[in-house]
Computed example of a mutant assay.
Amino acid sequence: MPEQDDREREFDLRWADGAEFKEPSARARMLAARWKENPPRPQPFRADPGPRTPRRSSWRSTAIVLGSVAAVILLLGYVNFRASY
């Protein structure tokens, strides 16, 4: 019986994929309705993102992270060294 269900399901999928008209998704219908009343403004292919705030140097961030890791390693080593005496 399960083989027959698989065959029927495969038939249904082939039948659905071969349909001439496919209904648009809910999002596509929603956007079409919204744009019918209020169409979006035209935009260039890659719109200018506008002014950017300057970022901090990635080297500075890397140095802070690596320095923090080194400090934690040294602190743990010191605590372990003091505990062994």
Rank of each mutant, 00 (worst) to 15 (best):
52 R>M: 07
33 A>F: 09
37 E>W: 05
84 S>N: 15
2 P>H: 03
20 E>M: 01
77 G>N: 11
42 P>C: 04
31 L>E: 04
68 S>Y: 00
19 A>D: 07
55 R>K: 15
46 R>S: 03
76 L>A: 06
19 A>I: 02
16 A>P: 04
28 A>T: 12
35 W>D: 15
41 R>Q: 03
50 G>N: 02
80 N>C: 08
85 Y>L: 09
71 A>R: 03
8 E>Q: 13
79 V>Q: 07
48 D>K: 08
65 V>D: 01
70 A>N: 00
29 R>H: 04
14 R>S: 11
10 E>Q: 15
4 Q>K: 10
71 A>F: 06
84 S>T: 15
15 W>T: 10
26 A>C: 03
16 A>R: 15
85 Y>H: 13
62 T>H: 07
30 M>D: 06
16 A>Q: 11
84 S>P: 02
25 S>Y: 02
33 A>C: 05
77 G>Y: 05
85 Y>I: 06
34 R>E: 07
37 E>P: 00
57 S>R: 04
36 K>P: 00
74 L>C: 12
61 S>R: 06
34 R>C: 05
62 T>E: 08
30 M>A: 08
51 P>S: 10
59 W>L: 02
7 R>S: 06
5 D>T: 15
54 P>L: 06
12 D>T: 09
10 E>V: 06
60 R>N: 10
40 P>G: 01
63 A>T: 09
59 W>D: 08
57 S>Q: 10
10 E>A: 15
38 N>T: 14
15 W>V: 12
63 A>Y: 08
36 K>L: 12
25 S>H: 02
60 R>Q: 14
18 G>D: 04
67 G>P: 01
5 D>R: 13
11 F>Q: 14
73 I>A: 13
19 A>C: 05
3 E>Q: 08
23 E>P: 02
56 R>P: 00
56 R>E: 11
54 P>Y: 06
16 A>V: 05
21 F>D: 11
52 R>I: 00
32 A>N: 12
46 R>E: 07
71 A>V: 03
72 V>Q: 00
39 P>T: 06
60 R>H: 15
25 S>N: 05
42 P>W: 08
34 R>T: 07
20 E>Y: 05
85 Y>M: 11
39 P>H: 05
84 S>M: 14
41 R>S: 02
6 D>E: 14
45 F>T: 15
16 A>T: 10
77 G>W: 15
66 L>K: 01
53 T>F: 12
79 V>C: 05
48 D>H: 11
23 E>D: 14
4 Q>I: 07
81 F>H: 15
